[in-house]
Design a protein around this nucleic acid. Structure first.
Lengths: 205, 205, 205, 205
DNA sequence: TATGAATGAGATTTCATTCAT
DNA sequence: TATGAATGAAATCTCATTCAT
């Protein structure tokens, strides 16, 4: 068997794997992890139930595989994209980047988030894959700014979590339809408001 | 049948209802909603499976009932407890209050949170019951401060969600064991750091 | 709840358990363990599939439970029934007893025997439950006879297994329809032939 | 196409067939018939799953084919090898021969035996292939000895089954590890004990 | 002929809910 | 009202077999 054939087969396998993942993503997004049945996933993906198990050990592995898809999102570049001496630009860029990530993968992340509260393995995985990279990046950035006296003395760990939580919460409100008032605010406005808060606080000057 | 007897019966029924809810709370906290079985709940509560269905329509209603228990937490008092002209005191008091709430009900809230991502009814209920009261309170407070020129002009809606998100995220980190560094920070320190951020921002002066 | 009620319930439970075991026995006998489905067993027993699992942890436990039924067969009495000084009577009685056991439980033992070759746990259980008691009894009897000089010096372990094997094999032939010639031989004749072989050997005198 | 080519092809096909059977034998021996998967057999044999079905109609045919391999064991020669007038030599030779057969094919015979209890076709086949040839041979030998007055008058059919059962049972004990005491007895001793029993019985003289 | 991906029927097991006592 | 045995739908996963390449 030549390499060409091998490559072709590998391509096909990858395509089929993705086909299944797409189906799983869709059904998970619609029904959540538990109410999504393998039968439904198979039907949506256009394969038989058995085929799913040729590519994934079990239903849970589908969730992990989907997480991997989301997790492999570039983040490091932000450090270089934004001018290092302009914290406003940095934070703004970072937040837009995360917003786009959630906008893209939001429906998929919901069932993953749901499982997080129950499944400690998944919890660790999400933490290591989605939280840690961002947190580390932001912490380091904050520390640098503190060292350079551009930021006052802060607990970078807490402030970082504060940032992540603040952003996440607002994103969820903006991307969901919970509060209709959010529809009237643009992504830019929302992010600017948060950035300004972090930089200047809310006290009148 | 006299009122006395009726009352006694009602009391018994209420007691039995609570008994069941205690059992459900415990098992939900341990196993999460889906892996909690009614058999297990019945055993933990010390009743039979059938009895559960005399007090609750189905397993899902147990979750809603538990949410009601958590939701009926006093919050309004904070406004009066803290001096209205001292935003730092207000925010600090508020945050401690919420922290205590999560500390008390955290294990029970986890399975509820997990279901939120799947169950839109539950989502609305949690939103109306836990988020809205706090959000409304904080929004009003913020608006007052803005009107009184103590706060600069802000989008109170966004800043409020930012506050809630920031606090929630930090609380989760502190109450879980995800990041060991959080163990070395006291509740007071954590809340102070967040409050200061909100009031002053992070820029060096 | 009075003891009467408890007893009644226990009786019912035992009856239901037996009802299921009867169904399992029948289906196992017809189809063998692997081809017997729980659905079929449930139908035959006249209960729902779920009910089976209220009484037995899994399908395999049905097999073990059936084995227990077969295993609890009296054997010790033989020692006392037969005159101790009459080896011919002892062996004859023993063999008839075992023959009756197999005649009664044969169809049920077949699927158990089949699993023995695959399932080492079952193998041990059958060995301990069916082989060991008989073997021990016979070995002791043989040893006594040797000590009393009624038997020549023999390896009681081997001779015992020889006896068990010899009897088992003949019983299987007699109870199955493999060899039609066996139909023309009575149980008495068969056992007498074997007993005489053991006592006298086959050499012409 | 010449005969040479045809022959070559036939040789290849036979080789491939054997290759598959070797794999099947190994996996059946390890896992038993039911737990052996065609995937595992294919891997062990070094072929693809599909190829198996080019040579065998289904998984069950593999078992039958393996049985054929075991069954084609020479036995007739024994009659000529052992001095006809020396029953002890004859029985001893016969038993050693069967013991070697089981020693060689034992692991493979186990899964076959397991299926016997369920599969009547297999049962007949094993009977015709393994039991009948030996039984017939032994029966004839016994009859001759009876006719020659070297053996007393016996039911050759029963005594033959007795012999086969006696030997089989002891062999299984010796080849398995069920009873550790069997490890301390040599093959020679075991067989001699059985032979002596058959010839002389166990009564003290 | 060889491959191995795809199939899909079918099996075991779980568990929320019902209902006769 | 309390019980808990019975239910049976439904879900996951396995694996012998097929078939396009």
């Amino acid at each position: 068997m030549t390499n060409l054939v091998t490559d072709f087969k590998a391509q096909m396998a990858l395509a089929r794997r993705n086909q299944i993942l797409q189906g799983a993503a869709q059904v998970f997004a619609e029904k959540g992890f538990h109410k999504a049945t393998t039968k439904q996933i198979a039907k949506t993906a256009g394969v038989s139930e058995g085929t799913i198990y040729n590519y994934f050990k079990n239903k849970r592995e589908l969730l992990f595989a989907l997480l991997d898809m989301v997790g492999t999102q570039p983040l490091q570049s932000i450090v270089h994209e934004a001018p290092p001496n302009d914290p406003r630009a940095f934070l703004t860029t970072l937040m837009h980047n995360r917003y786009q990530l959630l906008k893209t993968h939001g429906p998929l992340l919901a069932p993953i988030m749901a499982e997080i509260f129950t499944d400690s393995t998944l919890r660790s995985e999400v933490y290591d894959m989605l939280i840690v990279p961002m947190a580390k990046l932001v912490e380091q950035y904050f520390q640098t700014q503190v060292d350079d006296k551009r930021f006052r003395s802060i607990n970078v760990m807490i402030i970082t979590r504060t940032l992540v939580g603040a952003l996440s919460f607002n994103m969820i409100f903006k991307l969901s339809n919970i509060d209709p008032r959010y529809a009237q605010i643009s992504e830019d406005e929302m992010i600017e408001e948060i950035v300004t808060l972090f930089l200047d606080g809310i006290l009148a000057t």
